[in-house]
Simulated scan of single mutants.
Amino acid sequence: MFAHSQTPGGERWYIYNVLLECSSNEKEFEHFRFPGRTLRFSTPPDNSFVLFPTPVGQAFTCHRDLSIELEDPDTPDTTAILLLREFKSEPFMFKSESYGQDHVCSDPRTGGGRSEAAPFIVGSMLAFAALSMVTGYSIYRYFKIKKVQYDTME
């Protein structure tokens, strides 16, 4: 189960909580250390957790594999990883009963995420230029400007 919410301005929706319930009686969990128990995994409760922010009226779509790490509050040392493949979600149907325009996730292999290298380099160059200018002017004033004794002036 996915719990959705909107940003305070209402321009985006996001998933803030994921709940996965599974029974360890299933065949896939035959070697599980808690037999006969139903486990409820969820995102951490302290969560400042925002998954898949998407503009309202659009559907979040991702064609690559996504993974979400979940934990069981009853057994803190037990975690689960939820793998999502070909994932598409839109919690608020906008003006119709079908999905809205796709808001496709960025693929890190194709550089979909924004690189912070260029702003860092430009900022560093600007800081170096300002520091050089102040240092150069200080050296110039120290050696070239005639010192005036203000206490002898009348």
Rank of each mutant, 00 (worst) to 15 (best):
F2A: 06
A3H: 10
H4W: 03
S5I: 03
S5K: 13
S5W: 05
P8W: 12
G10V: 10
E11S: 15
W13N: 02
Y14I: 01
V18D: 04
L19A: 06
L19P: 00
L20E: 05
C22I: 14
S23G: 12
S23K: 06
N25S: 12
N25I: 00
E26S: 10
E26C: 02
E26R: 04
E26G: 06
K27R: 09
E28I: 14
E28N: 06
F29A: 02
F29L: 09
F29K: 00
E30N: 02
H31R: 05
H31F: 15
H31N: 11
F32R: 02
F34A: 02
G36E: 05
G36N: 15
L39H: 14
R40S: 08
R40W: 09
R40Q: 11
F41W: 03
P44R: 13
P44D: 10
P44F: 09
P44N: 08
N47E: 09
F49Q: 14
F49R: 10
V50G: 04
L51D: 02
F52A: 08
P53W: 01
V56I: 15
G57P: 09
F60I: 01
F60D: 03
T61F: 03
T61A: 04
T61C: 09
H63N: 11
D65F: 02
L66A: 05
L66H: 09
L66T: 13
I68D: 01
I68T: 06
E71A: 11
E71G: 11
E71C: 09
D72S: 08
D72P: 01
P73K: 10
D74P: 01
D74E: 14
T75H: 05
D77P: 01
T78S: 04
T78C: 08
T79F: 14
I81E: 12
E86H: 14
E86V: 09
E86W: 09
F87P: 01
K88L: 12
P91T: 03
M93H: 07
K95F: 04
K95A: 02
K95H: 10
E97P: 00
S98D: 02
G100F: 07
G100D: 04
Q101C: 00
D102F: 04
C105E: 14
D107M: 05
D107Y: 03
P108M: 11
T110E: 06
G113R: 04
R114M: 07
R114C: 01
E116N: 10
A118S: 07
F120Q: 07
V122F: 09
G123R: 13
G123L: 07
M125W: 06
L126M: 12
L126C: 09
F128M: 07
L131Y: 03
S132I: 01
M133V: 06
M133C: 14
V134L: 11
V134P: 01
G136D: 06
G136C: 05
G136P: 03
G136E: 05
S138E: 03
S138C: 12
I139T: 11
Y140G: 01
K144V: 05
K144E: 14
K144Y: 15
I145A: 13
Q149K: 13
D151A: 12
D151Q: 08
T152G: 05
T152L: 15
T152E: 12
M153H: 09
M153P: 00
E154V: 04
E154Q: 13
E154M: 09
